[in-house]
Design a binder for these strands. Sequence first.
DNA 1: CTGTGCTTGTGAATGTGAACACAAGCACTG
DNA 2: CAGTGCTTGTGTTCACATTCACAAGCACAG
Lengths: 189, 189
Amino acid sequence: MYLRAISFLQQQAREYVSSQDLADQLHLKSPQIRKDFSYFGAFGVKGTGYHVDTLIGRIRDILKLSSIQKAALIGAGRLGKALALYPGFGMYGFEIVEIFDSSPQKIGKKIGNTKIKSINDLGDMEEQGIRLAILAVPSEAAQEVADRLVESGIRGILNMAPCYITVPKRVRVQTIDIAMELGILPYYV
Amino acid sequence: MYLRAISFLQQQAREYVSSQDLADQLHLKSPQIRKDFSYFGAFGVKGTGYHVDTLIGRIRDILKLSSIQKAALIGAGRLGKALALYPGFGMYGFEIVEIFDSSPQKIGKKIGNTKIKSINDLGDMEEQGIRLAILAVPSEAAQEVADRLVESGIRGILNMAPCYITVPKRVRVQTIDIAMELGILPYYV
DNA sequence: CTGTGCTTGTGAATGTGAACACAAGCACTG
DNA sequence: CAGTGCTTGTGTTCACATTCACAAGCACAG
């Protein structure tokens, strides 16, 4: 979250930012931000604030986003297609290098510059330096595909299906349930 | 989150569920779940667990998901199209009744059964009983469109753009930044 | 080179949510 | 109808994150 906000400032050629500025922008309190940054190591300048470039570098290092991260996309349906062509991944240094689907009609076709392969041809991801996968398949198939991904050496899964998937402890799953996020709104409205 | 998990059990014709069962499934501790449910009012049965149908009804009531909620979709790009046809909204009782876009090429065309209208024809949403909007436009346009939505009487916005939008206090914003969620993974991997 | 105004970094206080442990109670068995 | 096993509901403890408050320190003006 900080990375996104501060990258935005960098684009505006802003050189320094104070904890107060960030707090206003992110709707947080300034001591919160100072405390968080202090855990990253103290590199703020009293009276001036934090050097934007330094801050971004430090956060990217911590999050291991300094180098390009290759990712595989599973599921070339409407959502999968939208994700494959989504421009927002670039900012964090992600690149979708493989797309897989189970439907024979889709296999062999291209999305952007990437050819859709059969899910059965999911090789050894670890060997290819692919540690992340984006799972955009129907809920019913999610667990089965996740199992295959784990087997192939994937270490992190972004699950777009509205269900829980079970994986070994060494694998990290992050789930986005779009409908659930929408489901939060009526309560407050 | 509970609603999703318990709805899944309902589909399996499960009649009762214990806090322990849910805890295992959701990777939580059972006292957490009992405490949460106790805030909803005590309706569990000692020795048996919670009645699934009652629990679902209670949670839906609290979240105000008992009746159909109409929603407008803004942005008919790849992501917008995927969301318009996304089957997952039905489970929470959401229905996308309007689609808007700014591109003349898209206006007039249909996605599913819904015709795409010009963003300039965004009328009085409140009058039409539409309280929620899904924002699937580029970051640059997000704030401007959000302002218009607020003006039209929208009360809740699901923002799919990777940016903060500022709205009056009476309006609630829920942001999904897909790339950010993926950005969390490398740290753990 | 001194004074003023900001801003950081952090110990202490505060608030909040999660985990524990156990009494109370229902169901089912023999 | 007593006994056993399981499960809820909750008072208490614990852990942790947020907020406060302020000393320390940098920058810039005069």
